[in-house]
Every structure is written in structure tokens, then in C-alpha cells.
């Protein structure tokens, strides 16, 4: 595998605020990469500097081995699907999709062939003579996708591609996006703030916060071995408890279980229960803190009931919120 996009020491500022600071970031060819982070994390800026719509203040961006840092958007050969799709309102679907080809000055016959092929892949063959305003959100998105991939870009950038769709369509389309990427073998950078979306489709996830990359890795790595407290909390839910030597004990709800009695367990009181069908999420008050535990036992519990909690797997974070050592199976961690 070779790296198709590389950031090295990239800094982007707006006025005095640094919105992006990336020391090193590589994206491998033919992979589905998801950039995840809360709003203001710099993920859209990362996409826009890749496209050339913003120019970086420092550092280098290599695309396919070429330094494109100073290149304007129109000579970078990338595909970009905007959050609101940005179709050309005065052109019909065929002409919208054909734009990147007509700009290159390809012969008419070749343009028609390519547009029709892409339209077939994306299932928009019947829409070709319609105007953007006549299309639904999902259809507009497919047209925007078609326009982005018809020029066979070096990399396909998707800016929150699912955020304007309703919940049902969103779940449907995200697996479609992944299968499309597999079919075409292209490299995708997909920006989102939705962690479940990211986990569901990413080969590689890049978790960002405050303009910096917190962690890059497969969804499993990021979920099971978060490098920082932020990643742990943003990808999945966590419980934190203070421990000795001012460290933080962190565990996921499914990494704890309620037991009748044990030696080194934590004692708490059930304050609320969220029934979820197969499982129940228990809110348990421990000292001053309230933690959540995923109860898979199916046993009947009551609010106000005193109970013991056993931690199966914990992570320890230091004061600066970075991990101290890799999570390990903890047998009976003493309660603080």
C-alpha cells in the first residue's frame, strides 16, 4: 500500500486562531478514511486545504507524491462533495455531471459515455434531464457524487455527506458509500461528527479536536485503545472515576458488570434504569459520581438497590488526559 495523501507540519490559521495543526498524517491508497471530531475540530478545514480552497500557512501537502501545497483547486484533480451538494442550479443533471469533463475539453462522445457510465453506477440514469431543484436530497447527493467521481479523481473528499438526510436514509446511504468505494477502488476522505457513522464505515479513523489529530487508527483500535481521554469519550461512552496518585480510572459501560458480592469490587446504589430490550443501562451512584453500567444479565433490579460492581477492563489516564498504559484486563481493582 502506498500513501496517496500526506500532510507534514501543516498549520492553518484564521487571523490569530490556529484552526489546524497537523505534524504528520498519511492516507493509504484505496481506503475509506473518516475524519471525526466535534464542530470546530478542524476537520472541514483539513478537507478544504486538501482541496486547495484554503491555503495553508505552513507545511506541505503531498498528493500522489506531488507537492500540491501551492496549487489552486483547479489543478489538483480531486473530487469534492459539498455538504449542501452545491449543484449548479442552471444546469440539468447531465450537464452538472459533465462539467469536469467539458472543462477538460474532452470530445462530446467520450463525455456522454463517461457520464452515462457513472450515472449507471449511481443509479441516476433516469434523472439526467432533470434540474437540481426537482430532485430530493438523496438524489441531489448522488448527482454530486457522480460529478465528483466522473473525472476519476486522485482522492474523493466528502464533507458531512449524510448530515442533510433523514435518519433512515443516512444509515442506508453510508453502507452504499462504502460499497461504492470498494467497487471503484478510490481513496475517500469522509468528514463527519457522527461517531457511529464513522465506526460503521471507516477503514481508518482520524479523530480530531481543537485543530489537532488526537488519534488515527482502525475503528477497533480507536475504540478499544483510545490514546487520549478525549478520544475515549468522543468515540463511545465512558465512565470516569478518580483514583490514587491523581490518575483517572476510565471504563466503558460494557466493561463493568453488576455482581452480588466480590472482594475487590466497587459499591454503589442504583439510581435509574434505562431498559433497552436485550440489555439494561444502570445508573449507579458511587460516592459523588454516577456511572453507567451495561447490564446483560437480564436479572430484575430495583431503583435504590445497593449493589457491587466489578470492573472487567479499565484504562488509566494521567492528569494531562493521555493514557498511562495500554488497557488491560483488571481483576479486582481496588475502589478508591
Amino acid at each position: 500500500m502506498s500513501s496517496v495523501l500526506t500532510f507534514s507540519n501543516v498549520v492553518k490559521r484564521f487571523g490569530k486562531t490556529t484552526v489546524l495543526q497537523v505534524e504528520r498524517l498519511d492516507f493509504q491508497k484505496s481506503t475509506y478514511n473518516v475524519i471525526l471530531g466535534p464542530s470546530g475540530a478542524g476537520k472541514t478545514t483539513l478537507l478544504r486545504v486538501t482541496a486547495g480552497l484554503e491555503r495553508v500557512d505552513e507545511g506541505k501537502i503531498l498528493l500522489d507524491g506531488e507537492d500540491v501545497t501551492a496549487r489552486p483547486p483547479w489543478s489538483r484533480h480531486i473530487g469534492l462533495v459539498f455538504q449542501n451538494y452545491a449543484l449548479y442550479p442552471h444546469l440539468n443533471v447531465f450537464d452538472n455531471v459533465a462539467v469536469p469533463l467539458t472543462v477538460k475539453g474532452l470530445p462530446r462522445a467520450e463525455i456522454e459515455r463517461k457520464v452515462e457510465e457513472v450515472a449507471r453506477i449511481l443509479g441516476i440514469g433516469e434523472l439526467l434531464s432533470k434540474h437540481p431543484r426537482q430532485l430530493s436530497g438523496g438524489q441531489q447527493q448522488r448527482v454530486a457524487l457522480a460529478r465528483a467521481i466522473v473525472k476519476e479523481p486522485k482522492i474523493l473528499l466528502l464533507d458531512e455527506p449524510l448530515s442533510n438526510l433523514d435518519a433512515k436514509l443516512r444509515v442506508e446511504l453510508r453502507s452504499y458509500l462504502k460499497s461504492l468505494q470498494r467497487k471503484l477502488g478510490i481513496t475517500v476522505l469522509h468528514v463527519t461528527h457522527d461517531q457511529s457513522e464513522a465506526m460503521a464505515i471507516a477503514d481508518e479513523m482520524v479523530v480530531m479536536n481543537n485543530g489537532r489529530v488526537e488519534q488515527k487508527g482502525s475503528p477497533q483500535e480507536v475504540y478499544r485503545s483510545p490514546r487520549t481521554l478525549f478520544v475515549a469519550g468522543f468515540v463511545g461512552s465512558i465512565n470516569t472515576l478518580p483514583s490514587k496518585d491523581s490518575q483517572l480510572l476510565v471504563f466503558r459501560p460494557e466493561d463493568a458488570e453488576v455482581v452480588d458480592t466480590c472482594d475487590d469490587c466497587i459499591k454503589g446504589t442504583i439510581t435509574a434504569m434505562e431498559y433497552q430490550g436485550v440489555n439494561t443501562i444502570l445508573h449507579i451512584k458511587v460516592g459523588d459520581a454516577t456511572i453507567k453500567v451495561l447490564d446483560q444479565s437480564g436479572m430484575e433490579r430495583k431503583e435504590g438497590q445497593e449493589t457491587w460492581i466489578r470492573l472487567k477492563r479499565v484504562m488509566r489516564f494521567s492528569r494531562d488526559e493521555t493514557i498511562i498504559r495500554d488497557p488491560e484486563t483488571a481483576r479486582g481493582t481496588k475502589s478508591p
Binding site: 480552497l53 449542501n84 452545491a86 472543462v103 460529478r147
Partner: peptide, 27 residues
């Protein structure tokens, strides 16, 4: 005027000059 039309045109291979005459002006 939404900036997206212009940006889409740039990404599609038009410089800011031809983006204006081919995409912005007609719309």
C-alpha cells in the same frame, strides 16, 4: 451569493475567472 457554486467550479477544474463566466454569471 453562496460560495459553494464558485468552489465547486474550482474543484471541477475552472480557475476563478472562468468559474465566474461559466457558472456564476449564468446562475
Amino acid at each position: 451569493f453562496p460560495a459553494h457554486v464558485d468552489e465547486a467550479a474550482q474543484v471541477d477544474g475552472m480557475n476563478t475567472f472562468s468559474a465566474f463566466f461559466r457558472m456564476i454569471l449564468p446562475s
